[in-house]
Amino acid sequence: MGEPVLRVRNLSKTYMQGKIPVHALNDVSFDVEKGEFLSIVGPSGSGKSTLLSMIGLLDKPTSGGVFIDSVEVTKAREGDVPKLRREKIGFVFQHFNLIPTLTAFENVDVAMRFARVPKSERKKRAVELLTQMGLADRMNHKPSELSGGEQQRTAIARALSNHPAIILADEPTGEVDTKTRDMIVKLLRELSEEGHTILVVTHDTAVAQQTGRIITMRDGMIESDKRVIIDNDIEPASTHS
């Protein structure tokens, strides 16, 4: 295997709740190869979202670093952060993924506007991605007119729009029924097979089982890191305590 697309090194994050420090992340390290489909599981409060927000440059770690394509993005200057977010990261959240006043098409379009993609190119790509997500006939609908699954697929299309190095999804199936969940997971897996690198945080073991690797977190640390052979044949990759 080549150079990992993502390297997380000794990442720690301590929040201050008043005067009490909360160690949300505690010396977390792992590598992710290009094209991996990885799930992060663990009890509530174990630091999954915190980890994702550090990787996605939504917040700064207390110590340690994140390297994407060998660039230490956690060292980037404030002014360079938006560009890194656009070029390296595509986000899918559990809820409030879309701008409510904009249609599905415009939600995908706007992400490319921030990246200064010319209009004609934006249109072509948005249509292409939404069609790929099976939303060809739903493009001109507002989020309120879309089902939960359609909203999540729109968010995935948007996350893909700027060709990011990594897709980060925080509980993307948290609010949809099992049928829709399976459809979204299948979609994400297909994307990883096409070469996209995908990190998904989930509570749902059925979702985790579909990914190639499961990182389990507890109290801000990695409890286990296992590769999954399809057909639920689990083989340990490396284990931290």
């Binding site: 938006p82 656009r86 992400a111």
Partner: peptide
């Protein structure tokens, strides 16, 4: 608030 947060997560610049 959340909309602007989302835009920033999407990589919007301060000036945008």
């Amino acid at each position: 608030t959340r909309e602007f947060g989302l835009m920033k997560a999407m990589g919007a610049e301060v000036r945008d």
